[in-house]
């Protein structure tokens, strides 16, 4: 990987981050509604509202507030929540302790199911096993995750009472915290796993059709050997792309799933903060999400370059 290539990528990354912060700030400021009104409700008097706005620092000009926020971000200071009146970093930390393990569990489950299943199907192309796997993944892709979540709750929580239906007891509660994440993780992972299985399979079959693999097979390698030695590595490129895409999808997915299961995660924090017009929280958390997705995409690009040498030397 040439240093110049890397440097250009990093410059692009920084540019994207700065642009994103400006967009996020402007969008949040355009939102109609007033956090002070929401806090004080329908019986609030105008002087009370003004007092609260001043307390929240909302009476200052937009540019100063942007500078404050952006400089704060650089120092790692995310600001203070308007509604909860605690530092945003503290809130994010609490919420990440739910969302991150959930997303990790879901991704792990996705990979754990999809990669072997996809490879297995590809290696037995046109067999009954292949058709069965394809049929199952077709169904998996077709099921909306929130509907699936509702059904899981109906079966596992309401009818069988095996797993909690929602809520999160906190990590201090030990094993029951993990139990609380099982249904949400399954609901998130299965549709994703179905997609990834299909991508894995078709991508493997595609590389199997490539000349170099055909050559390898002509040289006497078995199908499975050709798969393992040559096709697998290249087949991972689209899988990586889709996995990158899925991460963003997963975050959007967690908003819905966190709502269905009443989990105190990052997605629900944003959802609530938007409704309460807790602009500081929304801004900082959305920025954090965007930054992480941009960085992940950057990593996917790097991974691309590592798996496929052809993409590196391009001028």
């Amino acid at each position: 990987m040439s240093p110049l290539w890397l440097l250009r990528r990093i410059a692009g990354l920084l540019f994207a981050l700065v642009a994103a912060s400006a967009i996020v700030f402007v969008l949040m400021d355009l939102l109609p509604g007033d956090p002070a009104e929401i806090m004080l409700g329908t019986n609030a008097r105008p002087d009370t509202l003004a007092a609260l706005r001043a307390e929240m620092g909302l009476d200052r000009p937009a540019l100063i507030r942007y500078a404050d926020w952006a400089l704060g971000l650089l120092r790692g200071d995310f600001g203070r929540s308007l509604t909860y009146s605690v530092p945003v970093a503290e809130l994010v930390q609490e919420r990440l302790a739910v969302t991150l393990p959930l997303a990790m569990m879901a991704i792990a489950l996705t990979l754990f199911i999809a990669l072997p299943l996809g490879a297995f199907a590809a290696s037995r192309r046109k067999s009954l096993t292949d058709s069965t796997i394809i049929a199952v993944t077709q169904l998996g892709v077709a099921i909306p995750n929130f509907w699936f979540a509702m059904m899981l709750v109906l079966v596992f929580a309401i009818s069988w009472r095996l797993l909690p239906s929602g809520g999160f007891p906190g990590w201090s509660a030990g094993p029951s915290a993990i139990l609380a994440l099982i249904l949400p993780a399954i609901a998130l992972a299965l549709p994703q796993a179905a997609i990834l299985t299909r991508v894995m399979r078709s991508s493997l079959l595609e590389t199997l059709g490539e000349d170099y693999v055909r050559t390898a097979r002509a040289k006497g390698l078995t199908r499975a050997e050709a798969l393992r030695r040559h096709a697998f590595r290249n087949a991972l490129i689209p899988v990586l792309t889709i996995l990158g895409l899925q991460f963003s999808f997963l975050i959007a997915g967690t908003v819905v799933i966190e709502n269905v299961f009443s989990l105190p995660g990052l997605g629900r924090l944003i959802f609530q903060a938007i409704n309460q017009r807790d602009l500081v929280v929304v801004r900082s958390v959305v920025m954090l999400l965007i930054a992480s997705i941009i960085v992940i995409n950057f990593c996917v690009d790097l991974a691309y370059a590592l798996v496929d040498p052809r993409l590196r030397g391009r001028s």
Partner: peptide, 18 residues
């Protein structure tokens, strides 16, 4: 005070004794 806003989750939480 457990914050469970989703009606289905609330129903299941009551039924399960949570």
């Amino acid at each position: 005070f457990k914050i469970i806003g989703d009606p289905t989750a609330a129903y299941a939480a009551m039924m399960a004794g949570d």
